[in-house]
Design a binder for these strands. Structure first.
Length: 617
RNA sequence: GGGGUGGUAGUUAAGUUGGUUAUAACGCCGGCCUGUCACGCCGGAGGCCGCGGGUUCAAGUCCCGUCCACCCCGCCA
């Protein structure tokens, strides 16, 4: 048996070796990242999680070590292949001192290790893709062989950074007198919000646990319990459709504090974020972060998580169009009379000239894919001048009155060559379409400024119109309304603003939270506005209401998407690159082939009958 | 549920108006090579063209369906 592991313990990681180690005997464990077999000299790139070191084998090296011919490390090294797991012992030498050249591309490029001993722990089949950063392989294959994908240096770096993120977070909250507490994953099902994954209860036939969407109610109970400051790094589960930045299970940094207001939360969170960026990205972020009311975000960007690196803006022209009674454009008149809106995305002339008429038509197809009836556009006469530039290449251009054109141009600060994209009618569709176009064009025209643009979005509406025209909680039903809006709860719920806030970074919602209701009468009014009786809620959230009879403190909190934070900090372009074993867009794990069917016996034990989905027609 | 992109050797791609034996690079296998680091040179193997159906004398190529992956809308209190 070899001396490795038992006697030869690892002395260094491959990527850490430098000129200062020259002359030292070292023991390295790792995987063969590449080989260059020159016959009398064999070079191996040895990889571990820290990086690479070049290992060199040669008959002269063996001889110096007193090995008989054909017995030394070199004699065995010719069988080495990619991804073999090996150990070597040897001496660190300066490459330039032993006939070689420094490799400037490698952190350890000044040195190499002359191998005197070699052990092959295990051989490897030819991997399905090369374990390198710049090899682009179909994601399907990467996910199937995730353990190999995870060997790639870029993912190794991502997860090492993520690990530091956990530690920094824990340090920060402990320093600020927070208590780290756990909450159950298997919880009572509560209606509303995201779909839950369900877990059948064998001991309680016919009943189900829900996998927690978040620890929301439990963390509020911690406040009732007097824990005062709580945090947790916790897995959450939501059975919704997946996206680039959404996985069915994901990790939150969950926070709740007592005896605080918004400013306290924001200050605490900004402190954490600034430290994350300082220590993990080496970037100083200015405080306090910018703040923007929800209404402004929707108005100027069409979304509640605007990417402020993108200079493009939306403009609501409804009032102007109304004032001019359509301004000669029939469809405008019809839309505003019907209570619809007229909204535009403005592309300033310097950028607009890069967008051809063909591309405009392609964008219309994109818009239709998102539910738009069409995509009106107009170019402010590039050759013109004055305050009422003609609208060229536009379905509205012929009839739009000079007065309307002047008013619009003034409102948007428009100039010759500007390209305007119109959305008419439904505000929700208009905002979706224009904000998407804004994002796509911002990227395509390379308009995004460099840097980190943090933003608190505030003053969210308390309620949204649900499917049946009833009011539903925009955040969750325990979110406190603004005190000055409490009276509106019964008269004009749509006008009530919540003490809720999101933290947005470069177009990503990275955290969201609110100040909660701690007064029973306010809670009752919110329930009433939601069209629910106290009995309804007693059934669903009774334990919380019960708890709130025993002196609940004023409290509030926030929850971070830790995966998204990791993604942004590492520069990853997908959540899947910061989650060790992610699921596909269909919610499956290609590596383990999950989910699967289970045996009839297992179902019987749970008193569950499974039936196939109806055949597609 | 809807819109879009893709699937050809282990990997990444090319494949013309449908027309001989489906190309290339990297990787892999064998041989040579003592300073390579994208090593080099010589030789070689490797294909359910995602799957199913159709049109055709003939389909990787055209049509229909379907599966998978990715991006987006809806959805995600």
């Amino acid at each position: 048996m070899s001396k490795f592991i038992v006697e030869h313990k690892r002395t260094h990681y491959c990527g850490d070796l430098r000129a200062v180690h020259v002359g030292q005997k070292v023991v390295l464990f790792g995987w063969v990242a590449g080989r260059r077999d020159l016959g009398g000299r064999i070079f191996i790139d040895l990889r571990d999680r820290s990086g690479l070191s070049q290992v060199v084998f040669g008959p002269d090296i063996d001889k110096r070590m007193g090995q008989a011919e054909g017995q030394g490390a070199h004699a065995h090294a010719d069988v080495l292949r990619s991804e073999f797991c090996i150990a070597i012992a040897g001496t660190v030498v300066l490459r330039t001192a032993s006939g070689g050249q420094t490799n400037l591309k490698l952190a350890s490029g000044e040195i190499e290790v002359e191998a005197s001993e070699l052990q092959i722990f295990s051989r490897a089949d030819t991997p399905p893709f090369q374990i390198e950063d710049d090899v682009e392989t179909r994601e399907e294959i990467r996910l199937k062989y995730r353990y190999l994908d995870l060997r790639r240096p870029v993912l190794q770096r991502n997860f090492q950074l993520r690990s530091k993120l956990y530690r920094l977070t824990r340090d920060y909250f402990h320093e600020n007198h927070f208590v780290e507490l756990e909450t159950p994953f298997m919880v009572k099902y509560t209606p509303g919000g995201a779909r839950n994954f369900l877990v059948p209860s064998r001991l309680n036939p016919g009943k189900f646990y829900a996998m927690a969407e978040s620890p929301q109610i439990f963390k509020q109970l911690f406040m009732v319990a007097g824990m005062d400051r709580y945090f947790q790094i916790v897995r959450c589960f939501r059975d919704e459709d997946l996206r680039l930045d959404r996985q069915p299970e994901f990790t939150q940094i969950d926070v709740e504090m007592s005896f605080i207001d918004e400013e306290d939360i924001w200050a605490m969170i900004e402190g954490l974020v600034v430290r994350m960026w300082k220590e993990l990205a080496g970037v100083d972020i200015a405080r306090p972060f910018l703040r923007m009311p929800y209404a402004e975000a929707m108005g100027s960007y069409g979304e509640d998580k605007p990417d402020l690196r993108n200079p493009l803006k939306l403009h609501d022209l409804t009032a102007i169009v109304k004032e001019h009674k359509g301004g000669g454009v029939q469809i405008f008149e019809k839309i505003v009379e019907g209570g619809g809106i007229v909204k535009i995305l403005r592309i300033p002339g310097t950028h607009a000239q890069k967008i051809s008429g063909t591309e405009v038509r392609k964008l219309e197809d994109v818009a239709k894919g998102m539910g738009a009836a069409g995509l009106g556009s107009a170019r402010l006469d590039p050759a013109g001048s004055g305050e009422a530039l003609a609208w060229t290449q536009s379905p509205f251009g012929k009839t739009a009155s000079e007065a309307l054109r002047a008013a619009v141009q003034k409102a948007i600060g428009g100039g010759p060559g500007d390209l305007l994209f119109f959305q008419l009618g439904n505000p929700k569709v208009a905002n979706t379409v224009l904000s998407q176009l804004r994002q796509q064009l911002g990227k395509k025209l390379d308009l995004l400024e460099k840097g980190w643009r943090f933003l608190w979005v505030t003053d969210f509406p308390m309620f949204e119109k649900g499917e049946g025209g009833t009011w539903v909680a925009a955040h969750h039903p325990f979110t406190s309304p603004k005190p000055e809006h409490v009276e509106l709860l019964s008269t004009d719920p749509g006008a009530v603003q919540a003490r809720a806030y999101d933290l947005v970074l470069n177009g990503n919602e990275i955290a969201g939270g609110s100040i909660r209701i701690h007064q029973r009468e306010v809670q009752a009014k919110v329930f009433a506005a939601l069209g629910l009786t106290e009995d309804d809620f007693r059934q669903k959230f009774g334990f919380l209401l019960d708890a709130f009879r025993y002196g609940p403190p004023p409290h509030g909190g926030i929850a971070f998407g830790l995966d998204r934070l990791s993604m942004l900090l590492t520069g990853a372009t997908s959540l899947r690159d910061v989650i060790t074993f992610p699921k596909t867009q269909n919610g499956t794990d290609l590596m383990s082939d999950c989910p699967t069917e289970v045996s009839q016996r297992q179902l019987d034990e749970l008193f569950i009958a499974s039936r196939p989905p109806p055949a597609k027609q």
